[in-house]
Design a protein around this nucleic acid. Sequence first.
DNA 1: TTTAATTTTTAAACTTTGTTCAAAAAAAGG
DNA 2: CCTTTTTTTGAACAAAGTTTAAAAATTAAA
Lengths: 197, 197
Amino acid sequence: MRLTERKMQRKREQILQTAISIIKSHGYSGATMELISSELLMTKGSLYYYFKNKSDLMYQCHNFVLSQAIKDHEEILAKNLNQRQTLYEMVCLHIDYAVEQKETFNLIMEPKRFFKQEQLEPVLKLRKTYETIFDQTIEKGIKAGDFQSDDYKVARLFILGAMNWIQQWYSPEGQLTKQELKDLYFDYIMKILGGKE
Amino acid sequence: MRLTERKMQRKREQILQTAISIIKSHGYSGATMELISSELLMTKGSLYYYFKNKSDLMYQCHNFVLSQAIKDHEEILAKNLNQRQTLYEMVCLHIDYAVEQKETFNLIMEPKRFFKQEQLEPVLKLRKTYETIFDQTIEKGIKAGDFQSDDYKVARLFILGAMNWIQQWYSPEGQLTKQELKDLYFDYIMKILGGKE
DNA sequence: TTTAATTTTTAAACTTTGTTCAAAAAAAGG
DNA sequence: CCTTTTTTTGAACAAAGTTTAAAAATTAAA
Protein backbone atom coordinates (compact mmCIF):
# COMPACT_ATOMS: atom_id res chain seq x y z
CA MET A 1 0.00 0.00 0.00
CA ARG A 2 2.84 2.42 0.76
CA LEU A 3 4.77 1.12 -2.18
CA THR A 4 2.19 2.41 -4.63
CA GLU A 5 2.58 5.92 -3.30
CA ARG A 6 6.32 5.80 -3.71
CA LYS A 7 6.03 4.40 -7.20
CA MET A 8 3.68 7.22 -8.10
CA GLN A 9 6.21 9.67 -6.72
CA ARG A 10 9.03 8.21 -8.74
CA LYS A 11 6.98 8.29 -11.90
CA ARG A 12 6.10 11.93 -11.26
CA GLU A 13 9.75 12.81 -10.92
CA GLN A 14 10.59 10.92 -14.07
CA ILE A 15 7.96 12.88 -15.98
CA LEU A 16 9.21 16.09 -14.42
CA GLN A 17 12.76 15.45 -15.54
CA THR A 18 11.63 14.72 -19.05
CA ALA A 19 9.43 17.79 -19.10
CA ILE A 20 12.26 19.97 -17.85
CA SER A 21 14.61 18.66 -20.51
CA ILE A 22 12.03 19.18 -23.23
CA ILE A 23 11.28 22.71 -22.09
CA LYS A 24 15.00 23.28 -22.26
CA SER A 25 15.31 22.00 -25.80
CA HIS A 26 12.00 23.08 -27.31
CA GLY A 27 11.15 26.10 -25.25
CA TYR A 28 8.10 26.61 -23.21
CA SER A 29 5.47 26.67 -25.94
CA GLY A 30 7.19 23.91 -27.87
CA ALA A 31 6.84 21.55 -24.94
CA THR A 32 3.50 19.99 -25.83
CA MET A 33 1.88 17.30 -23.77
CA GLU A 34 2.13 15.10 -26.82
CA LEU A 35 5.89 15.59 -27.10
CA ILE A 36 6.54 15.07 -23.42
CA SER A 37 4.47 11.90 -23.27
CA SER A 38 5.88 10.41 -26.45
CA GLU A 39 9.38 10.91 -25.06
CA LEU A 40 8.27 8.75 -22.13
CA LEU A 41 6.68 6.20 -24.47
CA MET A 42 3.19 6.88 -23.26
CA THR A 43 0.14 8.72 -24.59
CA LYS A 44 -0.61 12.26 -23.57
CA GLY A 45 -3.76 11.20 -21.77
CA SER A 46 -1.62 9.31 -19.25
CA LEU A 47 0.07 12.46 -18.08
CA TYR A 48 -3.22 13.53 -16.58
CA TYR A 49 -3.05 10.58 -14.26
CA TYR A 50 0.01 12.14 -12.66
CA PHE A 51 -0.61 15.85 -13.11
CA LYS A 52 -3.81 17.80 -13.01
CA ASN A 53 -3.11 19.72 -16.19
CA LYS A 54 -0.31 21.30 -18.16
CA SER A 55 -0.15 24.37 -16.00
CA ASP A 56 0.29 22.07 -13.00
CA LEU A 57 3.10 20.19 -14.72
CA MET A 58 4.86 23.41 -15.65
CA TYR A 59 4.43 24.68 -12.14
CA GLN A 60 6.02 21.53 -10.75
CA CYS A 61 8.97 21.95 -13.10
CA HIS A 62 9.48 25.51 -11.95
CA ASN A 63 9.07 24.44 -8.37
CA PHE A 64 11.57 21.63 -8.73
CA VAL A 65 14.29 23.81 -10.21
CA LEU A 66 13.68 26.68 -7.82
CA SER A 67 13.80 24.32 -4.84
CA GLN A 68 17.04 22.88 -6.07
CA ALA A 69 18.44 26.39 -6.39
CA ILE A 70 17.46 27.14 -2.81
CA LYS A 71 19.20 23.99 -1.61
CA ASP A 72 22.33 24.96 -3.50
CA HIS A 73 22.30 28.40 -1.91
CA GLU A 74 21.92 26.84 1.51
CA GLU A 75 25.03 24.82 0.88
CA ILE A 76 26.88 28.05 0.25
CA LEU A 77 25.57 29.52 3.47
CA ALA A 78 26.71 26.42 5.34
CA LYS A 79 30.29 27.14 4.37
CA ASN A 80 30.28 30.11 6.72
CA LEU A 81 32.34 32.39 4.57
CA ASN A 82 32.38 36.11 5.15
CA GLN A 83 29.43 37.94 3.66
CA ARG A 84 31.28 39.28 0.69
CA GLN A 85 32.53 35.84 -0.28
CA THR A 86 29.11 34.35 0.38
CA LEU A 87 27.45 36.90 -1.82
CA TYR A 88 29.98 36.31 -4.55
CA GLU A 89 29.20 32.61 -4.61
CA MET A 90 25.49 33.30 -4.52
CA VAL A 91 25.79 35.64 -7.47
CA CYS A 92 27.74 33.03 -9.42
CA LEU A 93 25.20 30.36 -8.61
CA HIS A 94 22.29 32.57 -9.55
CA ILE A 95 23.85 33.47 -12.86
CA ASP A 96 24.50 29.80 -13.55
CA TYR A 97 20.84 29.01 -13.00
CA ALA A 98 19.68 32.00 -15.02
CA VAL A 99 21.81 30.90 -17.94
CA GLU A 100 21.56 27.09 -17.76
CA GLN A 101 17.98 26.66 -16.60
CA LYS A 102 16.55 29.82 -17.99
CA GLU A 103 13.22 28.42 -19.16
CA THR A 104 12.27 26.84 -15.87
CA PHE A 105 14.17 29.02 -13.41
CA ASN A 106 12.39 32.22 -14.23
CA LEU A 107 8.96 31.53 -15.52
CA ILE A 108 8.13 35.16 -15.89
CA MET A 109 5.77 36.17 -18.64
CA GLU A 110 2.59 36.90 -16.69
CA PRO A 111 2.96 34.22 -14.02
CA LYS A 112 -0.03 35.68 -12.23
CA ARG A 113 -2.21 34.93 -15.17
CA PHE A 114 -0.55 31.69 -16.08
CA PHE A 115 -0.61 29.94 -12.73
CA LYS A 116 -3.87 29.18 -11.05
CA GLN A 117 -4.33 30.51 -7.55
CA GLU A 118 -3.42 27.21 -5.89
CA GLN A 119 -0.10 27.19 -7.78
CA LEU A 120 0.65 30.86 -7.65
CA GLU A 121 0.73 30.98 -3.88
CA PRO A 122 3.45 28.34 -3.37
CA VAL A 123 5.45 29.85 -6.23
CA LEU A 124 5.40 33.26 -4.63
CA LYS A 125 6.28 31.71 -1.31
CA LEU A 126 9.24 29.89 -2.80
CA ARG A 127 10.42 33.03 -4.50
CA LYS A 128 10.15 34.86 -1.23
CA THR A 129 12.31 32.19 0.40
CA TYR A 130 14.84 32.63 -2.34
CA GLU A 131 14.87 36.39 -2.02
CA THR A 132 15.13 36.17 1.74
CA ILE A 133 18.39 34.26 1.45
CA PHE A 134 19.82 37.21 -0.44
CA ASP A 135 18.33 39.69 2.00
CA GLN A 136 19.81 37.91 4.98
CA THR A 137 23.24 37.77 3.48
CA ILE A 138 23.12 41.45 2.62
CA GLU A 139 21.77 42.33 6.05
CA LYS A 140 24.49 40.37 7.80
CA GLY A 141 27.03 42.02 5.56
CA ILE A 142 25.76 45.44 6.52
CA LYS A 143 25.99 44.59 10.20
CA ALA A 144 29.47 43.24 9.72
CA GLY A 145 30.48 46.43 7.93
CA ASP A 146 31.10 44.65 4.63
CA PHE A 147 28.26 46.46 2.87
CA GLN A 148 26.29 49.59 3.42
CA SER A 149 22.84 50.45 2.15
CA ASP A 150 19.61 52.01 3.23
CA ASP A 151 16.69 50.35 1.46
CA TYR A 152 18.66 47.21 0.85
CA LYS A 153 15.52 45.37 -0.19
CA VAL A 154 15.09 47.65 -3.16
CA ALA A 155 18.76 47.19 -3.88
CA ARG A 156 18.18 43.44 -3.86
CA LEU A 157 15.31 43.82 -6.33
CA PHE A 158 17.57 45.90 -8.53
CA ILE A 159 20.35 43.33 -8.33
CA LEU A 160 18.23 40.24 -8.88
CA GLY A 161 16.51 41.96 -11.77
CA ALA A 162 19.81 42.73 -13.42
CA MET A 163 20.89 39.12 -13.03
CA ASN A 164 17.60 37.63 -14.17
CA TRP A 165 17.71 39.67 -17.30
CA ILE A 166 20.93 37.98 -18.35
CA GLN A 167 18.94 35.11 -19.79
CA GLN A 168 17.43 37.49 -22.30
CA TRP A 169 20.69 38.28 -23.99
CA TYR A 170 23.53 36.08 -22.86
CA SER A 171 24.91 33.59 -25.33
CA PRO A 172 27.87 31.30 -24.65
CA GLU A 173 28.97 32.05 -28.21
CA GLY A 174 29.22 35.76 -27.45
CA GLN A 175 32.26 37.83 -26.50
CA LEU A 176 31.84 37.44 -22.78
CA THR A 177 32.72 34.25 -20.94
CA LYS A 178 30.46 33.29 -18.09
CA GLN A 179 33.26 33.92 -15.63
CA GLU A 180 33.86 37.44 -16.93
CA LEU A 181 30.16 38.06 -16.76
CA LYS A 182 29.99 36.93 -13.15
CA ASP A 183 32.94 39.06 -12.13
CA LEU A 184 31.70 42.19 -13.87
CA TYR A 185 28.25 41.78 -12.40
CA PHE A 186 29.65 41.20 -8.96
CA ASP A 187 31.65 44.40 -9.28
CA TYR A 188 28.51 46.37 -10.08
CA ILE A 189 26.71 44.72 -7.20
CA MET A 190 29.50 45.72 -4.86
CA LYS A 191 29.21 49.29 -6.05
CA ILE A 192 25.53 49.27 -5.26
CA LEU A 193 26.07 47.72 -1.86
CA GLY A 194 28.98 50.03 -1.11
CA GLY A 195 31.33 47.11 -0.60
CA LYS A 196 34.99 47.98 -0.15
CA GLU A 197 37.24 46.84 -2.95
CA MET B 1 -5.60 53.95 -55.77
CA ARG B 2 -3.46 55.61 -53.09
CA LEU B 3 -6.47 56.15 -50.92
CA THR B 4 -7.07 52.45 -50.49
CA GLU B 5 -3.57 52.01 -49.14
CA ARG B 6 -4.09 54.76 -46.59
CA LYS B 7 -7.39 53.32 -45.50
CA MET B 8 -5.75 49.96 -45.01
CA GLN B 9 -3.11 51.64 -42.93
CA ARG B 10 -5.65 53.39 -40.74
CA LYS B 11 -7.52 50.19 -40.19
CA ARG B 12 -4.33 48.43 -39.22
CA GLU B 13 -3.56 51.06 -36.65
CA GLN B 14 -7.05 50.88 -35.28
CA ILE B 15 -6.71 47.13 -34.82
CA LEU B 16 -3.30 47.63 -33.29
CA GLN B 17 -4.63 50.05 -30.71
CA THR B 18 -7.42 47.70 -29.77
CA ALA B 19 -5.02 44.78 -29.56
CA ILE B 20 -2.66 46.75 -27.35
CA SER B 21 -5.43 47.74 -25.01
CA ILE B 22 -6.71 44.17 -24.80
CA ILE B 23 -3.27 42.79 -24.14
CA LYS B 24 -3.05 45.36 -21.37
CA SER B 25 -6.33 44.31 -19.79
CA HIS B 26 -6.35 40.58 -20.47
CA GLY B 27 -2.70 39.75 -20.64
CA TYR B 28 -0.91 38.22 -23.51
CA SER B 29 -2.53 34.80 -23.58
CA GLY B 30 -5.94 36.24 -22.79
CA ALA B 31 -5.83 38.38 -25.91
CA THR B 32 -7.48 35.96 -28.32
CA MET B 33 -8.14 36.81 -31.93
CA GLU B 34 -11.81 36.32 -31.15
CA LEU B 35 -11.75 38.87 -28.33
CA ILE B 36 -9.78 41.43 -30.30
CA SER B 37 -12.03 41.15 -33.34
CA SER B 38 -15.27 41.22 -31.38
CA GLU B 39 -14.11 44.42 -29.69
CA LEU B 40 -13.82 45.87 -33.20
CA LEU B 41 -17.22 44.46 -34.18
CA MET B 42 -15.79 42.12 -36.74
CA THR B 43 -15.14 38.40 -36.95
CA LYS B 44 -11.78 36.93 -36.19
CA GLY B 45 -11.30 35.83 -39.77
CA SER B 46 -11.19 39.46 -40.85
CA LEU B 47 -8.08 40.12 -38.82
CA TYR B 48 -6.21 37.91 -41.22
CA TYR B 49 -6.94 40.33 -43.97
CA TYR B 50 -4.83 42.92 -42.16
CA PHE B 51 -2.27 40.78 -40.38
CA LYS B 52 -0.62 37.59 -41.46
CA ASN B 53 -1.24 35.81 -38.19
CA LYS B 54 -1.41 36.36 -34.47
CA SER B 55 2.32 36.38 -34.02
CA ASP B 56 2.49 39.12 -36.65
CA LEU B 57 -0.16 41.16 -34.86
CA MET B 58 1.64 40.81 -31.54
CA TYR B 59 4.89 41.75 -33.19
CA GLN B 60 3.32 44.90 -34.61
CA CYS B 61 2.03 45.84 -31.17
CA HIS B 62 5.47 45.43 -29.68
CA ASN B 63 6.96 47.34 -32.55
CA PHE B 64 4.50 50.17 -32.19
CA VAL B 65 5.13 50.67 -28.49
CA LEU B 66 8.87 50.30 -28.80
CA SER B 67 8.98 52.82 -31.64
CA GLN B 68 6.98 55.26 -29.57
CA ALA B 69 9.41 54.81 -26.71
CA ILE B 70 12.31 55.55 -29.00
CA LYS B 71 10.61 58.75 -30.20
CA ASP B 72 10.04 59.80 -26.61
CA HIS B 73 13.68 59.26 -25.81
CA GLU B 74 14.70 61.30 -28.80
CA GLU B 75 12.66 64.17 -27.46
CA ILE B 76 14.66 63.99 -24.27
CA LEU B 77 17.89 64.06 -26.23
CA ALA B 78 16.67 67.10 -28.14
CA LYS B 79 16.50 69.07 -24.92
CA ASN B 80 20.29 69.09 -24.78
CA LEU B 81 20.59 68.67 -21.06
CA ASN B 82 23.82 67.55 -19.48
CA GLN B 83 24.36 63.80 -19.59
CA ARG B 84 23.44 63.19 -16.00
CA GLN B 85 20.14 65.00 -16.40
CA THR B 86 19.52 63.31 -19.72
CA LEU B 87 20.10 59.91 -18.22
CA TYR B 88 17.81 60.70 -15.33
CA GLU B 89 14.99 61.53 -17.68
CA MET B 90 15.67 58.45 -19.75
CA VAL B 91 15.57 56.26 -16.67
CA CYS B 92 12.26 57.80 -15.62
CA LEU B 93 10.82 57.29 -19.07
CA HIS B 94 12.00 53.73 -19.29
CA ILE B 95 10.51 52.89 -15.91
CA ASP B 96 7.24 54.48 -16.97
CA TYR B 97 7.10 52.27 -20.02
CA ALA B 98 8.13 49.17 -18.09
CA VAL B 99 5.33 49.76 -15.60
CA GLU B 100 2.56 51.15 -17.81
CA GLN B 101 3.09 49.17 -20.98
CA LYS B 102 4.64 46.13 -19.48
CA GLU B 103 2.96 43.51 -21.66
CA THR B 104 3.87 45.07 -24.96
CA PHE B 105 7.07 46.94 -24.05
CA ASN B 106 9.07 43.89 -23.13
CA LEU B 107 7.79 40.88 -24.93
CA ILE B 108 10.35 38.65 -23.42
CA MET B 109 9.43 35.05 -22.76
CA GLU B 110 11.35 33.27 -25.52
CA PRO B 111 11.05 35.97 -28.21
CA LYS B 112 13.39 33.99 -30.37
CA ARG B 113 10.98 31.11 -30.47
CA PHE B 114 7.87 33.23 -30.54
CA PHE B 115 8.72 35.53 -33.40
CA LYS B 116 9.35 34.16 -36.81
CA GLN B 117 12.62 35.07 -38.45
CA GLU B 118 11.13 37.88 -40.51
CA GLN B 119 9.78 39.49 -37.34
CA LEU B 120 12.65 38.73 -35.04
CA GLU B 121 15.15 40.64 -37.11
CA PRO B 122 13.36 44.03 -37.02
CA VAL B 123 12.61 43.55 -33.34
CA LEU B 124 16.25 42.98 -32.54
CA LYS B 125 17.17 45.95 -34.68
CA LEU B 126 14.72 48.20 -32.89
CA ARG B 127 15.98 47.01 -29.54
CA LYS B 128 19.49 47.74 -30.66
CA THR B 129 18.42 51.28 -31.58
CA TYR B 130 16.91 51.66 -28.15
CA GLU B 131 20.00 50.38 -26.42
CA THR B 132 22.22 52.56 -28.53
CA ILE B 133 20.48 55.67 -27.24
CA PHE B 134 21.48 54.65 -23.75
CA ASP B 135 24.98 53.78 -24.85
CA GLN B 136 25.50 57.11 -26.51
CA THR B 137 24.32 59.05 -23.52
CA ILE B 138 26.58 57.06 -21.25
CA GLU B 139 29.49 57.42 -23.62
CA LYS B 140 29.03 61.16 -23.89
CA GLY B 141 28.79 61.34 -20.12
CA ILE B 142 32.06 59.49 -19.76
CA LYS B 143 33.76 61.89 -22.17
CA ALA B 144 32.30 64.85 -20.34
CA GLY B 145 33.55 63.44 -17.07
CA ASP B 146 30.06 62.94 -15.66
CA PHE B 147 30.42 59.16 -15.54
CA GLN B 148 33.22 56.69 -15.55
CA SER B 149 33.19 53.08 -16.59
CA ASP B 150 35.18 50.51 -18.47
CA ASP B 151 32.87 48.01 -20.16
CA TYR B 152 30.01 50.45 -20.16
CA LYS B 153 28.02 48.25 -22.49
CA VAL B 154 27.89 45.52 -19.92
CA ALA B 155 26.95 48.15 -17.37
CA ARG B 156 24.12 49.20 -19.66
CA LEU B 157 22.91 45.60 -19.90
CA PHE B 158 23.01 45.40 -16.13
CA ILE B 159 21.09 48.64 -15.76
CA LEU B 160 18.44 47.95 -18.37
CA GLY B 161 17.95 44.48 -16.93
CA ALA B 162 17.38 45.87 -13.48
CA MET B 163 14.82 48.33 -14.85
CA ASN B 164 13.06 45.82 -17.06
CA TRP B 165 12.61 43.50 -14.15
CA ILE B 166 10.54 46.10 -12.34
CA GLN B 167 7.49 44.97 -14.26
CA GLN B 168 7.74 41.59 -12.57
CA TRP B 169 7.17 42.91 -9.10
CA TYR B 170 6.09 46.54 -9.04
CA SER B 171 2.57 47.31 -8.01
CA PRO B 172 1.15 50.83 -7.67
CA GLU B 173 -0.59 49.56 -4.54
CA GLY B 174 2.75 48.68 -2.93
CA GLN B 175 4.86 50.68 -0.49
CA LEU B 176 6.96 52.41 -3.09
CA THR B 177 5.66 55.27 -5.19
CA LYS B 178 6.82 55.37 -8.76
CA GLN B 179 8.79 58.52 -8.05
CA GLU B 180 10.63 56.94 -5.12
CA LEU B 181 11.33 53.94 -7.29
CA LYS B 182 12.79 56.09 -10.05
CA ASP B 183 14.99 58.04 -7.66
CA LEU B 184 16.28 54.98 -5.88
CA TYR B 185 17.04 53.24 -9.14
CA PHE B 186 18.77 56.29 -10.52
CA ASP B 187 20.94 56.38 -7.42
CA TYR B 188 22.02 52.81 -7.99
CA ILE B 189 22.67 53.55 -11.61
CA MET B 190 24.84 56.48 -10.68
CA LYS B 191 26.83 54.26 -8.37
CA ILE B 192 27.44 51.84 -11.19
CA LEU B 193 28.43 54.59 -13.57
CA GLY B 194 30.59 56.27 -10.98
CA GLY B 195 28.63 59.48 -11.27
CA LYS B 196 29.46 62.17 -8.74
CA GLU B 197 26.73 62.95 -6.24
C1' DT C 1 -27.24 55.05 -62.93
C1' DT C 2 -26.26 50.68 -64.00
C1' DT C 3 -22.84 47.36 -64.47
C1' DA C 4 -18.36 45.39 -63.77
C1' DA C 5 -14.32 44.98 -61.03
C1' DT C 6 -12.23 45.19 -56.68
C1' DT C 7 -11.98 45.18 -51.85
C1' DT C 8 -13.59 43.60 -47.48
C1' DT C 9 -16.17 40.56 -44.49
C1' DT C 10 -18.13 36.52 -43.29
C1' DA C 11 -19.16 31.79 -41.91
C1' DA C 12 -17.83 27.43 -42.01
C1' DA C 13 -14.32 24.07 -42.11
C1' DC C 14 -9.89 22.63 -40.57
C1' DT C 15 -5.54 22.24 -37.41
C1' DT C 16 -3.29 21.93 -33.27
C1' DT C 17 -3.08 21.36 -28.49
C1' DG C 18 -5.00 20.71 -24.09
C1' DT C 19 -8.47 17.99 -21.51
C1' DT C 20 -11.90 14.39 -20.19
C1' DC C 21 -13.65 9.85 -19.83
C1' DA C 22 -15.23 5.22 -20.32
C1' DA C 23 -13.27 1.10 -21.33
C1' DA C 24 -9.30 -1.94 -21.79
C1' DA C 25 -5.01 -3.60 -20.05
C1' DA C 26 -1.83 -4.44 -16.46
C1' DA C 27 -0.55 -5.15 -11.81
C1' DA C 28 -1.36 -6.41 -7.09
C1' DG C 29 -3.62 -9.02 -3.49
C1' DG C 30 -5.85 -12.84 -1.58
C1' DC D 1 -7.02 -18.25 -10.47
C1' DC D 2 -10.11 -14.84 -9.62
C1' DT D 3 -11.03 -10.16 -7.78
C1' DT D 4 -9.80 -5.64 -6.99
C1' DT D 5 -7.07 -1.75 -7.81
C1' DT D 6 -4.02 0.83 -10.55
C1' DT D 7 -2.53 2.43 -14.93
C1' DT D 8 -2.94 3.20 -19.81
C1' DT D 9 -5.30 3.88 -23.78
C1' DG D 10 -7.94 5.80 -27.58
C1' DA D 11 -11.54 8.30 -28.82
C1' DA D 12 -14.16 12.31 -28.24
C1' DC D 13 -14.38 17.10 -27.03
C1' DA D 14 -13.10 22.09 -26.36
C1' DA D 15 -10.65 26.23 -27.33
C1' DA D 16 -7.88 28.99 -30.21
C1' DG D 17 -5.44 29.93 -34.44
C1' DT D 18 -5.76 29.62 -39.49
C1' DT D 19 -7.60 28.97 -44.25
C1' DT D 20 -10.85 29.58 -47.78
C1' DA D 21 -14.69 29.94 -50.88
C1' DA D 22 -18.41 32.67 -51.25
C1' DA D 23 -21.19 36.68 -50.04
C1' DA D 24 -21.45 41.53 -49.21
C1' DA D 25 -19.88 46.04 -49.73
C1' DT D 26 -17.38 49.37 -52.03
C1' DT D 27 -15.30 51.60 -55.91
C1' DA D 28 -14.63 52.45 -60.78
C1' DA D 29 -16.22 52.54 -65.43
C1' DA D 30 -19.40 52.95 -69.05
